[in-house]
Design a binder for these strands. Structure first.
Length: 146
DNA sequence: GCCAACGTTGGC
DNA sequence: GCCAACGTTGGC
């Protein structure tokens, strides 16, 4: 009996979105730092998503609160490791490298009004801070950013 | 600043 | 294991 699980999971684990309140860590901070540990996540679902992020995966960087817009693109440069900001073994972090700033930030308003993006987790699960994005949704957001 | 939508905690 | 109370996030 062979397993039905495909050997490569390319399509699944390649695209993500992370949220940040720009008051605590902003896109311009990442531009300045070039690279940062994405840590401090204290939610199991978000943690599980961090664990699934593979090196090289593309990550949309979203500003919550004041801006409410996807600001740019980052990339996973180190797969999950234990979160250094706590002694609690449960929590994980990944390393993100800055990739490029969007020509136009893609606002939540625009995403909400886009018929192709009605199922995006950003809208469906508004409180989740690390979430997977489908290839189609990812491509659409990049298109809107042009 | 308010509040809806969650997620967590703790008493039972 | 249920659920009320509480805390947090994030959109408005």
């Amino acid at each position: 009996m062979s397993t039905l699980k495909p050997k490569t999971m390319k399509k699944d684990k390649c695209y993500w979105l992370v949220k940040s309140d720009p008051e605590s860590y902003s896109w311009s901070d990442l531009l300045k730092d070039k690279s940062t540990n994405w840590d401090g996540v204290r939610n199991y679902q978000a943690r599980n998503n961090l664990r699934a992020m593979k090196k090289g995966a593309q990550v949309l960087f979203y500003h919550s609160q004041t801006d409410k817009a996807v600001m740019g693109l980052a990339k996973v440069s180190e797969e999950s490791f234990s979160d250094q900001t706590t002694n609690d073994e449960r929590w994980l972090a990944v390393k993100l490298d800055v990739k490029n700033t969007f020509k136009k930030p893609v606002t939540l308003e625009l995403i909400k009004s886009n018929k192709k993006l009605t199922n995006i987790a950003l809208i469906k699960q508004s409180r989740l801070s690390v979430m997977p994005v489908t290839k189609d949704d990812f491509d659409e957001i990049l298109r809107l950013a042009q």
